[in-house]
């Protein structure tokens, strides 16, 4: 909000540019903008006051369940699901992106088919599918193709637990989206970088890991931050697999005490806290990988480093 400026003397002490003599500069006033801002602040304050004083929100219940062990375990599981499926998703997505950019037509087509399939079907359907995988393949075994001898590993129902199904569903789906994000990042790197790296004798692996991927990170990070946050919230879909994540834990509690709204508020507060923390790390990472690119930002945000 803009502060009021009662004095006629300008706060900005830059001299008038053209003449060079000290004519006072009167900054442009925004009366309408300021009036609208005041109205909005009043409306927002009254809404906040209403939320705080409305008895039917049951803030006492919110507070009493905010740190209940069941909710905390649920939040931890949600965080675990997010971290594991994002890690697998980013790893597999990088491989898929490199395959997609490969000159080998088989690798290229495989990657395209994977992305087409996993982006083209709903995540919820994929999760339920993995949950019911035992209906298709009751026994999981390692073996030679076309009905050759095989080594039985175990029952699908035992190997792929509900949690396993959730992780598979989330990670495989995420990989398809991350593949496209990473591909766009790789494509954003100047072709001259490839020439320079090759001329210095780098093989393909060195070229990717030392030169191309670190530069692609700058382009990859903002959409990946989006993905992490939607993944964190998307994990709430696994409540259909009866996995006690944050949302499902809240649901179990309110199905007993009928305090639906307060427990949804509890869950939302934890989701908000976790996305806030994750966004903070995103900003840090973006600054780390923006080194050497965003000179202006670096100068403003990290003046100490500039004094080197």
């Amino acid at each position: 909000m803009q502060q009021q400026q009662p004095t006629a003397v300008p706060l900005i002490e830059t001299p008038a540019p053209a003449s060079g003599d000290s004519v006072p500069v009167v900054p442009l006033r925004h009366p309408v903008r300021n009036a609208i801002a005041v109205v909005i602040v009043i409306l927002a304050a009254s809404a906040a006051w209403n939320v705080a004083t409305n008895q039917r929100y049951h803030w006492d219940v919110v507070v009493s369940f905010l740190f209940s062990p069941q909710i905390l375990t649920g939040a931890a599981l949600t965080l675990m699901l997010t971290v594991v499926s994002m890690t697998v998703g980013i790893g597999l997505g990088t491989v898929l992106a490199i395959m997609r950019l490969s000159t080998n037509p088989i690798l290229h087509t495989l990657s395209r088919a994977y992305i087409w399939f996993f982006r083209g079907t709903p995540l919820l359907v994929q999760l339920i599918f993995w949950y019911n995988i035992a209906a298709l393949y009751p026994v999981i075994a390692l073996g030679l193709p076309f009905g050759g001898p095989s080594l039985v590993i175990g029952s699908a129902n035992v190997l792929i637990s509900p949690l396993g199904a959730a992780l598979l569903g989330l990670a495989l789906n995420e990989a398809a989206y991350m593949a496209e994000i990473i591909r766009s990042g790789i494509n954003s790197v100047d072709k001259g970088q490839y020439d320079a790296a090759r001329a210095l004798g780098m093989n393909r692996a060195k070229l990717m890991t030392r030169v191309v991927l670190p530069q692609a990170m700058r382009v990859v990070l903002p959409p990946t931050g989006n993905q992490v946050i939607s993944m964190l919230k998307g994990t709430s879909l696994v409540s259909v697999l009866a996995i006690s994540d944050l949302l499902y834990s809240a649901q179990i509690i309110y199905s007993n005490n009928y305090q639906t709204i307060p427990l949804l508020i509890v869950a939302s507060l934890w989701y908000l806290l976790m996305t806030t923390v994750l966004s903070y790390f995103q900003t840090k990472l973006e600054r780390r990988y923006g080194r050497g690119f965003d000179t202006a930002t670096r100068r403003v945000l990290r003046p100490k480093r500039r004094k080197a």
Partner: peptide
């Protein structure tokens, strides 16, 4: 490629280093 060093028109320094 190690036999020759190469210098490019547009420098192609690694900007992140």
């Amino acid at each position: 490629r190690l036999t020759a060093g190469m210098v490019f028109q547009r420098f192609n320094l690694f900007p992140h280093m």
